[in-house]
Nucleic acid binder design. Structure first.
Lengths: 154, 154
DNA sequence: GCTTGAGCTAAAGTTAGCTTTAGGAATTAT
DNA sequence: ATAATTCCTAAAGCTAACTTTAGCTCAAGC
């Protein structure tokens, strides 16, 4: 039975458009924390619809689930988050999003310079500098170029 | 022996900062196509330094290896690419990059509206519309919200 | 001419973000 | 009361972009 203010995973899936499997996965990642009923089935709160909507929006912005969990951890634990609570953490994202846009724009402007000069591979190229976009999750140094031996005809 | 204009995988790795294993992987993905010497070892051209530099730059912009291979396939096959060739395909990227920046900016502006109204989860929310950033590689519908049952206190 | 470093292949492992599968158990509908 | 849904867990699979490992060969230096 779905009691007032309690919903099943299927209902939550329908409301959010997420797959049931995705919601279960989000639980393992600490993004929602449903209770269980007598039969062991998950019982979510209606406010979890908003919670997962927030997750989906943040993902559209390119944030990782880890980062999203971090930001959401700033929501009050003791009570159901209000509209104001959501607004506040949204502003955090807004700031990061701005940075990301700016980083991408800077990179684009550098590329413009390189298109002009046609080098694209010499170590004096502006793209050489790693003052870049986002965090590269991969391992290793990954620096660009350093190709002093390339001659014009290469 | 490294003959004039032929370099080993190790040399290429040093010049680009890439790991040897990454270069081998790029070969499987059709991003470079080295020849082999008598002993079966890869022999790259010096111009491959520029090729891989281009790959690295494009990756910074967030392009997938598949997309990069596609764009690079427009380079001349019959001769070593000139600076002008590189400039031309760079402009393709430049255009896509612009679109991406604009999409992100639009999304940010929508978020601004939502921060203002504090809804963040109602189906009249601007973030509901999927005129979005990039292609979502994942499967499934993935629409946002549609949460008519959420009441103010949720 | 032999030791050591560089290279080779094939296969398995890694992270993120999920989905799919298999085999049961709980709910809901009739 | 029984059939049809829905849900459960655990484990394996998937894509991207690589790395790691194992076991072996090649090439370069002394």
């Amino acid at each position: 039975m779905e009691r007032r203010n309690e919903i099943s995973i299927g209902t939550l899936a329908n409301r959010t458009g997420l797959a049931v499997s995705a919601i279960r996965y989000y639980e393992t990642q600490g993004l929602v924390a449903p209770e269980r009923n007598a039969g062991g089935q998950r019982r979510f709160l209606r406010s979890d619809i908003r919670r997962l909507s927030f997750v989906m929006i943040a993902q559209k912005f390119g944030f990782t689930l880890d980062r999203i969990r971090e930001v959401m951890s700033r929501l009050p634990q003791s009570r159901t988050p209000t509209a104001k609570d959501w607004t506040e953490i949204s502003q955090d994202f807004r700031a990061e999003l701005d940075e990301q846009i700016q980083a991408l724009t800077r990179l684009r402007d550098k590329l413009d310079g390189c298109i002009g000069c046609g080098c694209l591979s010499l170590d004096r190229c502006a793209l050489y500098n790693p003052d870049d976009v986002a965090a590269d999750k991969g391992a290793g140094p990954r620096y660009l170029m350093g190709d002093e031996a390339v001659r014009p005809e290469d």
